[in-house]
Deep mutational scan, measured.
Amino acid sequence: GMDVRRLKVNELREELQRRGLDTRGLKAELAERLQAALSGPSSG
């Protein structure tokens, strides 16, 4: 899988935006949010 901790802030935001998620917050928050999205149930 993707290691969200290795991504830069702008990369985290890009991935979040692609999934329609909130791109605001600290890098740690963005990484946590993206990780949750990646490990969560895949819809679609």
Rank of each mutant, 00 (worst) to 15 (best):
Q35Y: 13
S42G: 13
E15D: 01
R19Q: 04
D3F: 08
R19H: 05
K8A: 08
A37Q: 04
A36S: 08
T23H: 08
L34N: 00
R18V: 05
A31E: 11
Q17I: 06
T23Y: 07
E14C: 15
G40T: 11
E15N: 04
E32H: 11
E14G: 07
N10K: 15
L26A: 15
P41Q: 14
G40R: 13
L16H: 01
S42K: 11
N10Q: 14
L30A: 01
D3H: 09
L34E: 01
S39L: 12
G44M: 13
K8H: 08
V4M: 06
A37S: 06
L30R: 00
V4R: 04
E29W: 07
D22V: 06
Q35V: 09
L34Y: 03
A37D: 04
R33P: 00
R5Q: 08
L16D: 00
V9L: 15
S39K: 12
T23V: 07
D3I: 10
L12V: 02
A36M: 10
R18L: 08
S42R: 10
L7D: 01
R24D: 08
S42T: 12
L34D: 00
L21M: 07
R13W: 04
S42Q: 13
R24A: 11
L12F: 01
S39I: 10
L7T: 01
L7I: 03
Q17S: 13
E14K: 15
A31P: 00
T23R: 04
R13L: 06
P41V: 13
G25W: 02
G25L: 02
K8I: 03
V4D: 01
T23I: 08
M2I: 14
N10M: 08
R18T: 04
V9D: 04
R18E: 04
R6E: 07
L30P: 00
R18G: 03
R5D: 06
G44K: 11
L7K: 03
A36K: 12
R33S: 01
K27G: 05
G25Q: 01
A37W: 13
Q17A: 15
G25E: 02
D22R: 07
L12E: 01
G20W: 03
E11L: 05
A37N: 05
R5W: 15
R5T: 10
E11T: 05
A31G: 04
G44E: 11
G25V: 01
A36R: 14
R5K: 10
R13Q: 05
E32W: 11
S39E: 09
A28I: 07
R13M: 07
D3Q: 09
R13I: 12
Q17D: 06
G20A: 03
R5I: 06
A28D: 10
E15Q: 09
K27P: 10
E14Y: 15
R24E: 09
K8P: 05
L34P: 00
V9P: 04
K27M: 09
A36N: 10
D22H: 06
G1S: 13
L38Q: 04
R13G: 01
D22L: 06
K8L: 07
G20R: 04
A37H: 09
A37L: 05
L38A: 03
L7P: 01
N10T: 12
D22F: 02
V9N: 03
A36H: 09
S39M: 13
Q35N: 07
A28C: 10
L38T: 04
V4W: 08
E11D: 06
D3P: 06
E29F: 04
S43I: 12
A31M: 15
D22T: 05
S43E: 12
L38Y: 05
L21I: 05
N10L: 08
Q17W: 13
S43W: 12
Q17N: 10
E32R: 15
Q35P: 00
S42D: 11
P41W: 13
R6T: 10
G1W: 11
V9M: 13
K27V: 08
L21W: 01
A28Q: 10
G40H: 12
L21G: 02
A37M: 05
M2K: 07
L34I: 02
G1F: 11
A31W: 10
Q35M: 15
R24T: 14
L34A: 00
E11Y: 05
D3V: 10
L16Y: 02
M2V: 11
R24Y: 06
R33Q: 02
G44L: 13
L21D: 02
R6H: 09
E14F: 14
R18I: 07
L16V: 00
R33D: 01
L16K: 01
A37T: 05
A36I: 09
G20P: 00
G20F: 04
V4Q: 03
A31F: 09
S42V: 11
